[in-house]
Design a protein around this nucleic acid. Structure first.
Length: 859
RNA sequence: GCGAGAGUGGUGGAAUUGGUAGACGCGCUGGACUCAGAAUCCAGUGGGCAAUAUGCCUGUGGGGGUUCAAAUCCCCCCUCUCGCACCA
């Protein structure tokens, strides 16, 4: 369908007399209508949220976007439309709605682009933000734009830095020289969460371990609270489960092993299976373990050092690639098993992780598959201590009676763990302990385009956190950003900025040149929307108490762990400081699914770019080879030429169509493929609505019967419930049914059309405002009360029964609603087709489901 | 390997306290309107058998089971998606 064709056709139809009678109707021009209402909403500040009003509040939050150079993609409007529908619906329901938008504007890609092009990141970011803002306004979202914030604004990051100072004061921020994920290609250090399979999440570059001086946040101190408080959140179970797994709480025992010939030393290990201590036949230290140098024997020293050097240099990807084949070397030293006094060899192997537990393990090859594989390879003894498996085939990790284990023989695993723990604790050889998979959060980045740390280093190496009065510590205004070349931040070369003086002593000092990671600004932005221009406090306590918590938070699953865990952590810190009054920031969380593009595969499964596909006879064929192709959803990508740009869709069909289509595609949480034909279907629906309203003659239906009473009330009921439950696709389907009925009706009342307009308005606000005006209203419908339904009016007059005989439907029966059971049964049995199946049989059971069906069992 | 979720027409998806499977949209077919096309409006559309009709059979990834009745509950299997992955 040509662009011009769409518009011309609507003009022709629109200019004709409607079959419903009435005056010459105006043509539907989305561009005109949408611009008109967007101007009016902006001029009237229609969506301004009032702080601390009498009305009940409702806080609807979108995950604010990173303003990339590519602009908005069709995935953004999905979640944003969903929250906008809820916002508009809640306003009509009498709520004071806070629905803000802002920019997560610091970020690595912008910095890299700035370096490549010799521009300043701030300039690029500002242009990107302008594009995003224009696109969001074009879609008619009901944001309170007076509350717009940006994480790069010094007035904003002043408070990000302020929170850091509080973290520092509370002992939750510390500096450490730790092996970090060093990515040479990006020239920076990454958090564990930004490394996937040993490669950088951004750019897919290899990542190596390198010790560096870093700021680290003690998130592990909050591990238990982060875990426990998940319980009460109205979040998708999958997200909660991911967070639980990420925190990885593990209850076990720390056991201390003495080392032969080193009376002062010992090796602590963490185990969840203390009951298998009698089966510990060797120990393994991680290559980074500090005791290696002390205990290694002279004959083994060289091999161990070589092994360690090789292991430390490996990237994570190389380490994990070697999952199948475990390697290690003996230290020559021996430990003493505290349970039975036996000497057992100490090995070094990189299958033991330095960063988990104590960085050392007791190896129980009989009952741990990893230890079993290692023992096999290096011919270490395997001892069975729990009966139930065959140790020639592999380790046995199941339950069973203990053997070869002295005082715990015969006990099952659970009892044996308790018994062993008591035994160890009584002799002070070990103690119960909880370990987490969660690590402290490496909080430094070697970048320019991030929040500077409010920290200086004195000449003697002392770290001094600046006073709050020194905030914000602003980024230096440079014309362009150049890499330092040393792996340090580009800030390191800007000596005028770096060299400073200690405000307390007046002595020379150097600023911290690392900056904060992207997550910092997004950890608390939802608080700043509440009080965006306050220079004295992060957020006024009064306003915080009114607006928090966020009632609804919508965003992509990609933030299931990172952003949401960090934000919860900071929120708990702010809670402890008394800045906020809720333990958790986000009451309800909804993840929108991904929007995929259509793509085409040939019979080998290879994807064919869209410009090589010809559509004819209802099939899809390769332009050059002519071979038939199958259609399937795939991620939108430049190479497949299947990227849908929201600007183009709005230009052709309008924002209302884009909004309604994205909601109509399917359930919000599901991944769905974009279908241009589907967009046209939704456009046609809006066109039908438009013609209904604009072709309507108020006098034609006056005083006539209310023929649409039932379907109207059914529609109010269904749309209301569906919006409450985030089922926008079925809400739209019901509105389509209603419109179809309206086209069949002999005449329409003002109420018929007003209800339609109001119910559709959260989804397609521009066209509905225009229709509302056409129906004679002078005020915006944004705060008009939501239609109410009367349950009695929704009920059908006639009940349609399906009649089953032995479970198969044999007939239909229409009776007045409320017909008593015995009458329905009587008529059902008399049904001529049903009677055929009853003839000569005996009815042994009659089931009656009121209003639905009759089921007869015959023998 | 572990954990979570999902498999329904040509197609996106409806329907789950078990109660007439396929709402609504797309596509397709037919009709109205038109010189014609586009658009619009109306009707039909899971598959098969029928053409006497208010008809029969079959059908929600596959196979079993419970039940008068299963997309929905139970068991086994297959496929796909997502997350985690040497976490002791």
């Amino acid at each position: 369908m040509g662009r011009a064709g769409t518009c011309n056709s609507s003009r022709r139809i629109g200019s004709r007399r409607s079959s419903l009678g009435g005056s010459v109707a105006k043509r539907y021009e989305p561009a005109v209508v949408e611009a008109k209402w967007q101007r009016r909403w902006e001029a009237n500040k229609t969506f301004k949220a009032v702080d601390c009003s009498e009305k009940p509040k409702y806080y609807v939050l979108d995950m604010f976007p990173y303003p990339s150079g590519a602009g908005l993609h069709v995935g953004h409007p999905e979640g944003y439309t969903a929250t906008d529908i809820v916002s508009r619906y809640k306003r009509m329901r009498g709520y004071n709605v806070l629905h803000p938008m802002g920019w997560d504007a610091f970020g690595l890609p912008t910095e890299q682009y700035a370096i490549q092009t010799g521009q300043h990141p701030a300039d690029i970011t500002q242009r990107n933000i302008d594009t995003f803002r224009r696109q969001l306004k074009m879609l008619g979202f009901s944001y309170d734009w007076d509350r717009e914030i940006s994480t790069i604004d010094p007035g904003y990051y002043k408070w990000t830095q302020w929170i850091f100072l509080q973290l520092h004061k509370m002992g939750l921020a510390y500096v450490d020289e730790v092996p970090v994920n060093w990515c040479p290609a990006l020239g920076t250090v990454l958090a564990n969460e930004e490394v996937i399979d040993g490669r950088s999440e951004r750019g897919n570059h290899p990542v190596y371990r390198k010790p560096m001086r870093q700021w680290i946040l003690r998130i592990t101190k909050y591990a238990d609270r982060l875990l426990e408080d998940l319980e009460d959140l109205d979040w998708p179970e999958s997200v909660k489960e991911m967070q639980r797994n990420w925190i990885g709480r593990s209850v076990g025992t720390e056991v201390r092993f003495a080392i032969e010939g080193h009376p002062g030393e010992g090796i602590s290990v963490f185990t969840t299976r203390a009951d298998t201590l009698f089966g510990a036949t060797y120990m393994v230290l991680a290559p980074e373990h500090p005791l290696i140098d002390t205990i290694v024997t002279d004959t083994c020293r060289r091999a161990v050092l070589e092994y360690r050097a090789a292991a430390v240099q490996k990237s994570d990807i190389e380490r994990t690639d070697l999952i199948r084949e475990k390697t290690g070397v003996s230290t020559g030293a021996y430990a003493i098993n505290p349970a039975n006094g036996q000497t057992i060899p100490i090995w070094v192997a990189d299958y033991v992780l330095a960063s988990y537990g104590t960085g050392a393990i007791m190896a129980v090859p009989g009952h741990d598959q990893r230890d079993w594989e290692f023992a096999r390879k290096y011919r270490l003894p395997v001892v069975e201590v729990v009966r139930g498996g065959n140790l020639d085939d592999g380790a046995y990790a199941g339950d069973g009676p203990h053997v070869n284990s002295s005082f715990i023989d015969g006990l099952n695993v659970e009892e044996a763990i308790d018994a062993m723990n008591e035994w160890l604790e009584a002799r002070q050889l070990g103690r119960r302990k909880v370990t987490y998979r969660l690590r402290d959060w490496v909080f430094s980045r070697q970048r320019y385009w991030g929040e500077p740390f409010p920290v200086i280093y004195l000449e003697d190496g002392t770290i001094r956190a600046l006073d709050e009065s020194a905030l914000p510590v602003e980024l230096p205004q440079e014309d362009s950003v150049k890499p330092s070349g040393t792996g340090e931040s580009p800030l390191a070369n800007l000596t005028e900025w770096v060299d400073t003086v200690d405000p307390e002593t007046g002595r020379p000092a150097r600023r911290e040149t690392n900056t904060m990671p992207n997550w910092a600004g997004s950890c608390w932005y939802f608080l700043r929307y509440i009080d965006p221009h306050n220079d004295d406090v992060l957020v006024s306590p009064e306003k915080e108490r009114y607006w928090m918590p966020v009632d609804l938070y919508v965003g992509g699953v990609e933030h299931a762990v990172l952003h949401l865990l960090y934000a919860r952590f900071w929120h708990k810190v702010l809670y402890d400081l008394g800045v906020v009054h809720t333990k958790e920031p986000f009451k309800k969380l909804v993840n929108q699914g991904m929007i995929l593009g259509l793509s085409y595969a040939d019979n080998r499964g290879a994807l064919v770019p869209a410009d090589f596909v010809v559509h004819r006879d209802g099939g899809h064929f390769h332009r050059e080879t002519g071979e038939p192709l199958t259609e399937l959803p795939a991620k939108m990508s430049k190479s497949l030429k299947n990227v849908i740009n929201p600007d183009d869709v709005v230009k052709k069909y309008g924002a209302d169509t884009l909004r309604a289509y994205e909601m109509f595609m399917g359930p919000l949480e599901a991944s769905k493929a974009w279908d241009t034909k589907g967009v046209e279907g939704v456009y046609r629906f809006l066109l039908r609505v438009w013609r209904l309203v604009h072709g309507w003659d108020r006098n034609a239906g006056a005083g006539k019967a209310d023929t649409l009473l039932r379907v109207r009330h059914q529609t109010i009921k269904k749309v209301t419930h569906d919006i409450e439950a985030f089922r926008f696709n079925t809400a739209i389907a019901q509105l389509m049914i209603y419109v179809n009925e309206m086209y069949k009706a002999p005449h329409l009342s003002a109420e018929d059309l007003e209800v339609l307009t109001l119910l559709l308005s959260p989804i397609a606000p521009h066209i509905c405002e225009e229709c509302w005006e056409r129906l004679g209203h002078t005020e915006s419908l944004a705060y008009h009360p939501w239609p109410e339904y009367v349950e009695a009016y929704t009920l059908e007059e006639m009940a349609s029964y399906g009649i089953q005989v032995n479970g198969k439907v044999r007939g239909q029966l229409e009776v007045p609603a409320g017909t008593p059971k015995h009458q329905v049964l009587e008529q059902a049995k008399a049904h001529h087709n049903v009677a055929r199946y009853l003839a000569g049989k005996q009815v042994v059971k009659e089931i009656f489901v009121p209003g639905k069906l009759v089921s007869l069992v015959v023998r």
